[in-house]
Nucleic acid binder design. Sequence first.
DNA 1: ACCTGTTATGAAAGCGCTTTCAGATATACG
DNA 2: CGTATATCTGAAAGCGCTTTCATAACAGGT
Lengths: 338, 338
Amino acid sequence: MTSLKTLSEHLGLSQATVSRALNGYSNVNDKTRQRVLDAARALDYRPNSSARRLATGRAGAYGMILPSAQHLLLDPLFSDFMAGLTEALARRERDVVLGASFEGFGAATYERFARAGKVDGFVLAQPLLDDPRAAHLDRLGIPFVVHGRASRAPSHAFYDIDNHGAFRQAAELLVALGHRHIALLNGRPEAVFAIMRREGFLEGLGGLPRAQAPITETEMTEAEGYRATRAALEAGATALLCSSVLLALGAERAIRDARLELGRDVSLICHDDDLSGLSTASFSAPLTVTRAPIRAAGQAIAGMLEALMAGAAPETLQEVAPVELVLRASTQPPRRQP
Amino acid sequence: MTSLKTLSEHLGLSQATVSRALNGYSNVNDKTRQRVLDAARALDYRPNSSARRLATGRAGAYGMILPSAQHLLLDPLFSDFMAGLTEALARRERDVVLGASFEGFGAATYERFARAGKVDGFVLAQPLLDDPRAAHLDRLGIPFVVHGRASRAPSHAFYDIDNHGAFRQAAELLVALGHRHIALLNGRPEAVFAIMRREGFLEGLGGLPRAQAPITETEMTEAEGYRATRAALEAGATALLCSSVLLALGAERAIRDARLELGRDVSLICHDDDLSGLSTASFSAPLTVTRAPIRAAGQAIAGMLEALMAGAAPETLQEVAPVELVLRASTQPPRRQP
DNA sequence: ACCTGTTATGAAAGCGCTTTCAGATATACG
DNA sequence: CGTATATCTGAAAGCGCTTTCATAACAGGT
């Protein structure tokens, strides 16, 4: 293992100069720098990151804490989001470290990680309304950015998609097509995204009586999608709005079981995170979707973390990405009742 | 931030004694230790992990590198596996750090991480046959354990499930039921697990002509499952063996499209990793499965990593977990052709 | 020739811990 | 009572870097 000491002795320079040369400080002679760079490559020198962290006081890493409450993890989005984030941070030479919390929601875990200097900040995923973790981190002055948002008028940095607008538009479309009985298959009601979508949905419905707009808010699994759709169809729904592809998959199965045809008999709009394993192309009718690729989130959040570390104010780091409504064959005017 | 220095001054002890007391060394007076422990709690002392790492020369963390080749990530297993691993390591006060590789397969990335002292070892996921990453890590003497295995007779530490046995048994069951035209819907042929399953499948088939045992090896998505099943049914298959629930989902759709009934008309066995979002309960007939919960892998691998660090020989850390064949309604004798 | 300002380098302190080594105190033994 | 032994504690070195401060070298202006 070549250390800075070895390298500097090899070059006949002081450690200070070598360090400066390597870290791109300006006050180093160009020739010297080149010599240093060459030698570093030749000896395959890798600065020890613990030493550097200790000296700089920065971890050069961001944390993400997985809640132990299992149901919060049931998230097919997780791996795609993680991949996007990790890659974006890797480009900036930052690591992401994963932790697991045992004590309930794990606000304490966040504190432990930060205080131990393992990370410089966090990304908070799957926020609840007025999420205690966000409040806690805020109080401690630990930088973080939320994927989604932790309250209605957040003061923290966040990247979210326009869930409200997307579901409002989707509902409006269904209403415009003539549907008068529309079910929403949503995620768990604690999740902020679910709240936003529900509100957008209701707004898009206009004056439609609530009885004709049944809402279920559950885990977003195939099984729940099936169950909710069955109930909705029995109650007379002609259109469905699904918060995830998994729900839509279950919905399609229920539609089939009812001997109905997707699109012709029942309209369906689904939110599509553009996940790698679940394409909305794999339905019997091409699906109308509200679409927002989740990998984009990683990019954006990586940038915000870095900005935060550079001293940017959290309030200035807030992005609500638009959601595209993609019209396809799964949305059609309702059929006359036979 | 209370540091060791602060704490020791506060106690009127030397840093050495405080450090020893905190780290459970024997040669510290019980009373002293208690005093130290109490004070540490009171001042909410958190040892700086960079400093500790620098002093001990150990990172106290393990790495996992996400390949940039996107299709390798398309893995719904990823998040469940990750959750299991992270939790198991967290219990041992170890972190997991995620990296992303850009240069192809990323053997270089592993080296960078290890040499920079960011991690003490790795877990290698989704191994290919004779995986170059494993060879590289071996050559460098960097500890690692493979989730799956990287060759037929590995000398490295690994935790795998008995893919060969599982698919042999499943094929045998179908044959025993009387099926004579059985399709295998497998994962990509580079993956070791797919190879093992294919071989097990063929072995279980006994003398069945290969023409009656069509095999497709693709991404394990719903869409591919649909496509392969359609083709298989047209060719006359009466039974299917699927490497993942996602494939089975597609298979079921194709079966429906063909106006056939799962179980009665077409038998189906599926490998079930017990993923959080996709339950095999959500099929029109309860699915016969080969079952091996993926979360167990995290536990086992965490233990192996620690054993490796403690000096255990990799060859002694190899586990092939049994796979349970769960009989349910989706497997029945073939129907007479109408 | 002298001072000023720039540029390039080195010495050394320090980041917060662990660990070796030695010293102090207490206990046991002959 | 002296010496050997066990038990506990402290001083200090060191892990591998960064960064401050001082110094040296050199250019330019007067």
